[in-house]
Amino acid sequence: MRKLQEVTVYAHRGASKYALENTWNAFYKACEFNVGIELDVQITKDGVVVVFHDDNLKRLGGKKYKIENILYEELKELKIGKRWSRRFSNAQIPLAYEVFQWAKEKQVPLNIEMKNSFSAHPEGPKILASMLEGLENFHVSSFNPHLLKEMKQLMPAREMALIIKKSIPLEAIRKMKWIDSIHLHRRLYSLSFLEALQEMKKNIRIYNIIGSEAAMKKIAPELKGIITDYPERITKKLRLPVKR
């Protein structure tokens, strides 16, 4: 039976309850909590990989451009933030390569979510795979199984995790031989589902956890990780050490 100490907590988009999501301040704060980091990567038209969640810039950048259609030159000076909050404003979009190198130096585990802009770029997966060479404690996740299949071909020894938001037949998962892990939305959590996935030898993580769910009262031994907006709350429940 897996010990609770082996469950890795990942701060969703960095410590996004304390700083603007997917920014350096959010990553620094997550590092203080001594947890892993879940972050999102996009690729620009000219093949530069950046850390950003949305496919377009409207919500945080005030522009209607899709990242896959613009050059990095148009992004690098852009200020992003939530317009109604000074605390969550006036940041810039990080370069993924710089975040990866920082995480390597700090020994921070990464959950790297590939967004669909990588499907629009002919060399997208190859560019990301080359950037990840030499990085050790990470896995790649995506809602897009085809992107994960391509990444698995490029990096066969690395873990690929399919993110699931709604029910999917177990047989469909079984056919995806390139999928090593499943990231389940908390709504899909059930012991029977976890046991079925474990029989397929899939790593299992749960996301969108806030800490009050029934799943947190007794951690299933099949569970390998928790992805949350509340890393400090979850580490306390798991009795994991938190840096101050």
Score class of each variant (00 low, 15 high):
212 S>W: 10
109 P>W: 01
186 R>M: 14
1 M>W: 03
159 E>V: 10
76 K>P: 04
85 S>Y: 04
157 A>E: 07
229 D>P: 08
56 N>Y: 07
8 T>V: 15
202 K>M: 09
100 F>A: 10
121 H>W: 05
71 L>W: 05
26 A>D: 03
68 E>I: 08
47 G>M: 03
209 I>K: 01
207 Y>H: 13
66 K>R: 12
16 S>F: 01
105 E>V: 15
149 K>F: 08
22 N>F: 06
87 R>P: 03
81 G>N: 08
160 M>Q: 08
84 W>D: 15
115 K>P: 05
160 M>L: 13
217 K>T: 02
228 T>V: 06
193 F>H: 13
227 I>W: 04
7 V>Y: 02
73 E>F: 06
158 R>A: 12
164 I>A: 11
145 P>W: 06
219 I>G: 03
52 F>D: 05
193 F>L: 15
80 I>M: 00
116 N>Y: 00
201 K>L: 06
184 L>C: 11
97 Y>G: 12
170 L>K: 00
240 L>N: 07
125 P>F: 11
226 I>N: 02
41 V>G: 05
119 S>W: 09
67 I>M: 01
31 C>M: 14
55 D>G: 14
191 L>I: 12
209 I>C: 02
224 K>C: 06
162 L>P: 00
199 E>M: 09
155 M>W: 05
35 V>Y: 04
130 S>E: 15
227 I>T: 04
183 H>S: 15
30 A>L: 08
159 E>F: 05
56 N>C: 12
203 N>S: 12
138 F>G: 06
108 V>E: 10
96 A>Y: 01
32 E>N: 10
67 I>E: 00
79 K>D: 09
62 G>A: 12
114 M>D: 03
213 E>L: 04
28 Y>M: 15
202 K>W: 02
236 K>W: 08
123 E>N: 05
126 K>A: 10
78 L>I: 13
175 K>N: 11
204 I>Q: 02
77 E>L: 15
6 E>T: 08
200 M>N: 06
